[in-house]
Write a protein that binds this DNA or RNA. Sequence first.
DNA 1: CTGCCGGTATGATCTGGATCATAATGAAGC
DNA 2: GCTTCATTATGATCCAGATCATACCGGCAG
Lengths: 234, 234
Amino acid sequence: MDKLAALRKLALFEDINEATLKPLLDYFVVKRFERGDSIWREGSLATHFTFVVDGTIKIAKYRNDGREVILGVFGADEVVGHVAVYNQIAYPASAVALEDVTVLEIFRGHFYGTIQRTPALLEAILKNMMERNRALVQRLHEVTVSSAEQRLALLFCKFSESMGRRVPLGDGRWGVYIEIPLSRSDLSELINVRVETAIRLMSKWNKEGPIRTEKNGFTITDPDVLLKISQSSG
Amino acid sequence: MDKLAALRKLALFEDINEATLKPLLDYFVVKRFERGDSIWREGSLATHFTFVVDGTIKIAKYRNDGREVILGVFGADEVVGHVAVYNQIAYPASAVALEDVTVLEIFRGHFYGTIQRTPALLEAILKNMMERNRALVQRLHEVTVSSAEQRLALLFCKFSESMGRRVPLGDGRWGVYIEIPLSRSDLSELINVRVETAIRLMSKWNKEGPIRTEKNGFTITDPDVLLKISQSSG
DNA sequence: CTGCCGGTATGATCTGGATCATAATGAAGC
DNA sequence: GCTTCATTATGATCCAGATCATACCGGCAG
């Protein structure tokens, strides 16, 4: 694993020069996690910056009644938990691997000084945090959308935009493939409904609707219908 | 209105020295709004940083079905909309005055340069953003809490913490007074229910429950009961 | 004074999704 | 192979809160 190459892929570092990055290389540690592994837990002290290199993770808050609220799903090229690390506070939520995941970690102390001495990096982080902020506002907006079906459609529209790949459906038409290993349970948490409800919706969509469940992902067979569902006010 | 004094009240500037702040003073503009006035609208371009000096405002997103989702309520000493301004994007939500409000505005360009040249200010903003971030996560967590009554209790607990004032109830016991002019409709939007539901809950609480509605605020007559309601899992 | 309007109040009905229950699938380990 | 456990599936019932409808109150314009 070429650490430098991996780092370069991260948007956060794309404008940072070699001289700044080189001395840090040795401090970075590559870690791997399997599906279901906890990358960190809510409440534990944030000591390392974490960069997702490969795979997807979810950031979630667990309530005392056992249910969880997913704050976001993050994939390759994303920085997670830096908010807590930078602020030297405990993680406000847990991070769990949704599939096999590779991350780069660097100890807070080894990175903090560099950040402060590198305005470009500070700016990049600030920008990143604002984007995260915007995403949270968006998400807040989403979870309050009235019907469960609408929220689910919205969710898939978002995935489609961020990680969709056009694929032929065989009958001459085109669909969008989303490679993300989300169980019905994961989906239910993302749209804030019970598992059964998510299952019912996906079952319906699997036979008549606009989405088909694949081996480890989903195919949107009719993007237009999906969009219409997500927008139907009511 | 002494601009410098107003600025000093803002947490964002408390550690910034006079020399840095002085040259900026002339660029600040004081603006006043009445209850219901729009301070900015979702979608419009963010050109000015806005600091709330007096009064409270709400940041809300209006859905195409006419309903609104309140993202937050901000009072004196708070910075609003800076995320959009800093990022040079359109406001992701609208800002509306909840009562008579005084704000300080400064043009993006006049402030931006100073930020970049003043690490302490950049740090302060970064810190502020993280706090905002944390608050959003908290809010996301809140709106997904099951029952409406619980959410309402939670809301008042939060207000109580941030702006409550201990007051005697007359019968020897103590309550907490919250001076914030929220209508039933405002409350309903904050906890994401219909107006009627908010009215029913407040009516109930007014007679038997832990909260009394005042002229332009609320009195929590029994903080313990309120806390218990907010925590009851179910 | 009267009519209008926004906020408050309350009752009657409807419904989406939670909840409970039961079962079929399917991968993982022995 | 068989057993175990998680996931998917589907049906039956229940309820918080939406929705609809009606009414009261206080301020304000004419």
